[in-house]
Amino acid sequence: MTGVAANDGPTWETGPGRWIGIGSANDIPRRGARCVVTPQGRIAVFRTIENRYFAIEDRCPHKAGPLSQGIVHGRAVTCPLHNWVISLESGEAEGADEGSVGTFALKVEEGQLFISAEALAGWAG
């Protein structure tokens, strides 16, 4: 690995096909979320009841509520501030509300979670 981390966490390498490890899948409670802190802002990483993982911006399209703090149901999360429901798959607000957040590709390998470096690089934050 080349490059220097700005802090103690893993650094990330850009370029096609690069993945950055963010920890163990079991660090996230089922129907829950954890955050990943990046220089551009926070990313919320979710685990659903069926053990599927999703990463989206931790900023509600409504008034920037921290989506990682919401209640997770099905493949959606309800924002803790004013109850918008955001799809974890598409990042779009469901129902009558309009707006969307960015999503990030994730992969799980041997119980470890990796986020796409390419997706991060394309994110303005």
Partner: peptide, 17 residues
């Protein structure tokens, strides 16, 4: 404990070698 700490912090990007 997991509630109060981020699961990871990622530093600044560096160009791939």
């Amino acid at each position: 404990e997991h509630e109060f700490q981020p699961m990871a912090e990622i530093g600044l990007p560096v160009a791939a070698a």
